[in-house]
Write a protein that binds this DNA or RNA. Structure first.
Lengths: 222, 222
DNA sequence: GTTTTCATGTAACCCGTTACATGATTCA
DNA sequence: TGAATCATGTAACGGGTTACATGAAAAC
């Protein structure tokens, strides 16, 4: 029943975990914060929200606030329908975060996953990063052999395209290497057990991300 | 009537322009030569082929060859249905090649376009490359402003994701710059007028592609 | 002789967009 | 007051995949 998108569902739950929002605003956040990769339209978002409500992950807070107080008072501007994550929704999201099946490292999913790394434990992050990396290395392998078999029959442009494609993948692998390395060296563990705790620490800058200096040291891998 | 995919149609016509093929083989070529980016399934390909036949761009050559010669004799192995580009199909493809509307530089289309650059005139190539570039620069602009507005509210991971995304785009822009430059310097013009002529010159290596030496000079931009 | 690979197809579904309809609120 | 932006929705379509059904040729 209703659209169960996977990425969209995940992203919506993740964003609403931080704070309640109405659809319109949600969509903007989706298309900026996360939206370097994905852009959703209302035609996708609204039905999805309905579905999540039907599942009990979200509640709508229309017009009247809990005690009949007009919502106007809350924001200074009338918010039509504000969606708030329920306890069940929170649990569900935690579940999704830690469960991370093997499609967590596919192209469509990985970006969103990564965007919510801040709410995950390090082991999960490592699993996802390493999964992604081996996925890409697999792909590289295929590209290489396929290229070796067909190199002669291809014209310069096709070849150049192929080359650029492979280089892109290689570049992402190097990126992942840096990330994995700095996770490994990272001095904070953050919740080895999955659920709950560590409420709303605005995340300071607790994690050991590469903190990109200049960029491109001479590429240690290879 | 039937699926009109755009990219798939284009790719199929382009591949069949080189030589007739049956569906199965066609699909493999799609997923190797061009398939670094796209991968199609039979469920997409076969209906599309039917459609192209219905349009008169292709003809099916089943069992009996033109004069009743069993196709077995041709390949040593019985080819079920071989698709061949008609004259009308050829024209249509040329049309698509030169017409190149503004979606030729969108993500999904650009790759395939590029793959068939070998069959295009230089002006078209320039148009597409420059179109793509300005499309990407546009996108970069948006990313930059959006980032500037929201930088503070984002945690480290989201930020890193954004940074990596932008860098990817910047990288493609640099790639396009190289390509454009070498097109500009290229010593062959190849059909300044659009349609027809230059039948089947197997394309040797007439064009002045970057001919990538080693790779990665220390990154002059920035 | 059985398993792989080649080869063609279809129906059901999935995820998403476009175009449209509707109306409230803000701002010039 | 009228235009822009905020805000919510839906129906129709688009492009694609999955899973399935079918069968011939090759390889073991």
């Amino acid at each position: 029943m209703s659209r169960r998108s996977g990425v969209l569902e995940f992203a919506v739950l993740g964003l609403l975990r931080e704070s309640p929002m109405h659809g319109y605003e949600l969509r903007k956040r989706l298309n900026t914060s996360l939206g370097v990769f994905r852009a959703f339209s209302y035609g996708t978002l609204y039905p999805c929200l309905k579905g999540l409500v039907a599942n009990g992950w979200l509640v709508e807070e229309t017009g009247g606030a809990p005690d009949g107080v007009p919502a106007t008072a809350l924001t200074g501007r009338r918010a039509k329908i504000v969606y708030r994550l329920t306890a069940a929704g929170k649990d569900h999201f935690e579940e999704l975060l830690t469960h991370s099946g093997p499609d967590a490292w596919e192209d469509e999913h990985f970006g969103v996953r990564f965007a919510f790394f801040g709410q995950t434990s390090r082991d999960v992050r490592m699993r996802v990063l390493e999964g992604r990396r081996s996925r890409l290395e697999e792909r590289l392998e295929k590209m290489r052999t396929s290229l070796a078999r067909t190199r002669e029959r291809l014209d310069d442009y096709t070849l150049e395209l192929q080359r650029h494609g492979m280089e892109s993948v290689e570049r992402e692998v190097r990126w992942l290497n840096e990330l994995i390395e700095s996770e490994r060296a990272g001095r904070d563990q953050r919740a080895p057990g999955p659920t709950e705790r560590d409420k709303n620490t605005p995340s300071g800058d607790a994690d050991g991300l590469p903190r990109h200096r200049g960029g491109s040291r001479p590429d240690p891998s290879e």
